[in-house]
Each structure stands twice: as C-alpha cells, then as structure tokens.
C-alpha cells in the first residue's frame, strides 16, 4: 500500500500503519493521520478497503487512531532512504521534545540537498505542496526541492 501523496513510501514506511489484526476472513487495520486535516486519510482508507477486499478478505475494517500523535520519527530508515532517492529531503530524527519553543531566528540550514548533498540550502516556504513538506532551494546546484518537515 503506497501513500497517496508520497507514492514512493508505503503506509508502513511512513509510520501511519499502526496495527493489522487478522481473524479468518476478517481483518482490522489501524492507521493514524499525519496532520489533523490530512486529505489523504480517506484515500488511504478507501485504498486499504479495496486492496484487502481484492485479496480475499470478506470483512475489512479500517480504524483511525489519534493518540499517540504521528511523528516523522515513525518514518522507517528505509522510508528516509527512499525519500532522499526520489529527491525529497527526509526529516531529521527529533527524539523526545519538550514544550515547543518559539523560534525567532531564521531556520537553521541543516537540510542537505537531495541532489548534490550540499548543505548550502535555504527555505523558500515553510509550507509546500502538502502540509507535511516545506519548499527549499540549493545554493550550489540551484535546484528547488521539497523537505519533509520534522513534526
């Protein structure tokens, strides 16, 4: 199952697939949204139902859990690698974080260009083509690229 908006990743790579429980012909799949307003969630639900029905399950239930909230730390190592291979800068690992700090400095440019590896990159926009991505540009190869934001 591929993510509708990042089709280089499977739902498992992305970390939104939380649980699969199989009981004969009945299967319960649990997923979690990346962002509260993520419009891809219903596509995922429909895709899962379609694929599992095609795979022979007579009863398919897709559940959504909100807690614990999704974090980019749940993207698998494989997922990070696939993102970079497809020209999307992967998020850094954030680990456990305390209260969200207010950041009044320009964001630190520690995002490597997925094309040439340069660290001379800058943020063009904090919000890119989907809620989970920012838009950046490389100062060396001059190419724009997307970056999955740490959350």
């Amino acid at each position: 199952m591929l993510d509708p908006e990042l089709p280089v990743l499977t739902l498992a790579d992305l970390g939104v697939l939380r649980d699969v429980h199989e009981d004969g012909d009945h299967v319960v799949v649990t997923i979690t949204p990346t962002y509260s307003g993520c419009p891809a969630l219903d596509e995922m639900r429909a895709d899962l139902t379609r694929s599992l029905t095609a795979a022979g399950y007579t009863s398919v239930e897709v559940r959504t859990v909100l807690a614990p909230a999704w974090t980019t730390d749940w993207i698998s190592d494989d997922g990070l690698r696939k993102l970079a291979e497809h020209g999307i800068a992967p998020p850094s690992r954030i680990g456990r974080r305390g209260p969200v700090p207010l950041n009044l400095e320009p964001p630190a440019a520690r995002v490597a260009c997925p094309r040439c590896g340069s660290l001379r990159t800058r943020e063009l926009s904090r919000f890119g083509s989907t809620a989970c991505k920012a838009l950046r540009a490389c100062g060396d190869c001059k190419e724009p690229f997307e970056h999955v934001k740490e959350i």
């Binding site: 949204p33 962002y35 509260s36 909100l66 807690a67 614990p68 909230a69 999704w70 974090t71 969200v100 809620a131 959350i151």
Partner: peptide, 9 residues
C-alpha cells in the same frame, strides 16, 4: 488526543 496532534501543527 486532538490537542496532542494540534500542538504540533
């Protein structure tokens, strides 16, 4: 749960 997600956004 809604709050925990919302905080990040």
């Amino acid at each position: 749960a809604v709050a925990a997600k919302g905080v990040k956004e």
